[in-house]
Design a protein around this nucleic acid. Structure first.
Lengths: 149, 149
DNA sequence: TATTGTTATACTCTATAACTATA
DNA sequence: TATAGTTATAGAGTATAACAATA
């Protein structure tokens, strides 16, 4: 039998439980999205960047980093990927030649829509073991937990 | 101004938001524990392994991995760290010479208690932006989310 | 001088496979 | 043949610093 992770729940009262639980929760989410996005040749991180572009195009790389909570080096590499696949385009800004203006290509928009369709049910699937009334509450709390004032 | 992460909240309705939120939540927890544990020379992963040993000593490395949700390679390295610091001890099992019997040293127990004291308030601090009535609920939901049946 | 994006470097985490020694 | 632990390797993720171009 192959050695896997995630078979056992730990002591509920352990002070460190919250750290392990959040790690496990995060990997669950990455895997769930990954499974849906893999056929499209992208990962969650690409999907997220494309998502902020769809919502708020065009953006500089710095702005993208702020929105997806990644440092600038990571953004460079995600955009390298997207550009190599023909999904996004970097052009130097006219007004400030240091900044790159990032836009999705038509193909990028197409792939984004497909990714959106493919992953539409992922959040619901991830939350399905919570009681229906708790699902929204969990997301609200998670949002507050992740971004406390 | 140094370039940092985590300054902006993202579109609440994005399908991929749950992935980003869980990532951010996890790093928040690791950093919060890390800050308290660093003076003791350990990290959250060491604390977690020591915690399962305190609760259920002795354990094999395989059993430790199951309890802290880590693969066997990671367990080897965590125990290398703990043994090098004199906090844990590996001995070959009498009944099955393949398995190592892991126990904390007296010094290990001492450091664990100090770590426990130091990080006692971390979970509370992490949860303090939730409403008091929501804090237990969030942990219950997170537990179910991380370990669905 | 400071900022945007880039490159290089390094350190951690994770996943895999190969190896040993036992069973 | 299978398992517990070890080692080696490679791929991500993350952090830092240095750099080029520009402000």
């Amino acid at each position: 039998m192959a050695q896997k992770r995630g078979e056992i729940q730990l002591d509920q009262s352990s002070v460190f439980a919250i750290g392990l639980l959040l790690r496990r929760a995060h990997t669950r989410a990455v895997q769930a999205f990954g499974a849906k996005l893999a056929p499209l040749g992208i990962e969650l991180k690409h999907f997220a960047v494309m998502g902020v572009l769809v919502a708020d195009e065009p953006l500089s790389q710095r702005q993208i980093g702020e929105r997806v909570d990644s440092d600038k080096v990571s953004v460079v590499r995600i955009l390298d990927d997207l550009e190599a696949k023909g999904l996004a385009l970097r052009t130097s800004s006219e007004t400030d030649r240091r900044v790159k203006t990032i836009e999705l290509t038509p193909e990028g928009r197409k792939v984004y829509r497909a990714a959106h369709r493919a992953s539409r049910g992922v959040e619901a699937t991830l939350l399905e073991d919570l009681r229906p009334a708790d699902r929204d509450r969990f997301m609200v709390m998670l949002r507050r937990f992740a971004h406390p004032e």
